[in-house]
Amino acid sequence: MNKPITIKEIARDLGVSFSTVSKSLNDSSEISEKTKKKVKEYAALRGYTPNQIALSLKNSATFTIGVIIPDIQNAFFASVLKNIEIHAKSYGYRIVTFFTNEKLKEEEESLKILSKGLVDGLIICPSEETFKKRKFAHFDAVKNMNTPVLVFDRVDENLDFDSVSVDDFGSIISGLDYLYEKGARSILFASTIPALSVGKKRKEAFEKFLKDNPEVKGTILEDQENGVLQNMLLEVLKTEKIDAVFGMDIDSTMLASGAISMIGKEFKEEISLLGYVNKQYNRLVYPKISYINQFPEKIGQMAVDIIVDKIKIGNSKILKKEVIETFIAIKDTSK
C-alpha cells in the first residue's frame, strides 16, 4: 500500500514552501488563487488527506459529536440516530453514542462523560425517567460549557438549549380534525407516554379539541405498562361505541391495532385507527396503519446542521428552536 503523500512532499514536488502548501489547502487569503488552485489539484491527484489527529491537536477539536439516545429499539430514535450519523459524516464529524434505556442514572453518567471535552457538541434526547422524576440538575453542568448542546424530540422549559422537535400539538389537532371530518364522534385517546413532555403536549391538544367540539365524546386511556393499557383498551372497545382510536405513540398504536383485531371489528367500516408507527414495519403488514409522519430524517439532519454551525462559529446564547411540521399518512385503518 502506498504511503499517503504529505504536505512536505507536495511542497517539494511543486517547488514551493511548506507554508504555501498549508495555507493554500486552508484557503488563506495570503495565497493567490492561481497558486491555491495548483496546490489543491496536485494534492487531489496524489490522494492527499489531512491528518485528523494533527488537526485536532492544533484546533483543540475532536471532530466528534456526542449523542445520547433513550432507546435504540425504538424505531423513531433509531432512524434519527442513523440520519445524525450520515449527516455528521458529510461535515467530517464522527459520532459517539450512549444509550440510556430510559434511565435517569444512565443519562447522568453519559452526560458526565461527554461533558469532559471529549466531543465538540452534544445531541440529546432526555430519558423517560428524567421527565417522570422531573430531575434536570445534571444538565446544569453543561450550561456553562463552551460545548454546544441540542435537545431533540423531548423538549422542556427546564432544558434551555437549542432544540429540534415536531409540532406535537398541531399534529394531534390535525389528526383529530381529519377523524372528525370522516364522521368520528366518539374518539379514544391511548398513550403509554403520559409522563413525557410529548405525551403531555399530545394530551393537551386532545383536551383542547374536545373543548372546542363538545359534540365529540372523548375517552382517555393512559398507562406506561403495555399489558395494563391493552386490557384497558379491550374493555372499552368491547363495552362502548368507539368510532376511532388515536394512539399517541408506537406502543399504544400497536396495542390498539391488536385490540381492535382481537374483538373482530372492521377497520374503516366500524372503527378507524390513527397513530404512530415503525414505517418500515408498517410497509410489511396488513392492514397498514394510518400514521403521523414525524420525519425523523429531518430531525437528524437539522440537529447536525445546528450543532456544526454552533461549533464553527462558537457557542452562542441565542438559541435555535426548530419545529418540524408533520404529515398524516392515510393507510388501511382509516377512511
Rank of each mutant, 00 (worst) to 15 (best):
V308C: 03
F152A: 08
G314F: 11
I10P: 02
Q230E: 15
V166D: 11
K89V: 12
T192C: 12
I306D: 06
L111V: 08
E181S: 05
T49F: 15
D120P: 03
P214L: 02
F206K: 01
K317G: 15
K320Q: 13
L210A: 06
K317P: 11
Q52H: 09
L122K: 00
L159H: 02
I311W: 06
S334G: 08
F161E: 06
I53M: 13
F139W: 05
V39L: 07
K143L: 12
V39D: 05
N74R: 08
Q73A: 15
A75W: 10
L150K: 08
F267M: 03
A329G: 13
I10S: 00
K143Q: 14
S29T: 13
P296A: 09
A184S: 00
E297Y: 08
Y286R: 12
D140R: 12
D162G: 01
I318T: 15
N51M: 06
V216L: 04
L234T: 07
G66S: 08
Q224W: 13
L233S: 01
K8F: 10
F169T: 04
E207T: 10
F98W: 12
P194F: 03
I86G: 04
S163A: 12
T333H: 04
S110T: 02
T97L: 14
V142R: 10
K200Y: 07
S32Y: 04
I173Y: 04
G247T: 07
S29F: 14
L114A: 04
E240Y: 05
N231W: 09
K116L: 11
G92F: 05
S165F: 10
N83F: 07
G218N: 05
P70G: 02
L221G: 01
R12E: 12
E85R: 02
P50W: 06
F136D: 01
N144W: 14
V304F: 01
P287L: 00
V39I: 15
S56G: 14
E108Q: 14
A61T: 08
Y93N: 03
S197A: 14
A195T: 15
V323L: 01
K321N: 06
S165C: 14
K265A: 04
M254S: 14
E215F: 09
G218F: 03
L104M: 10
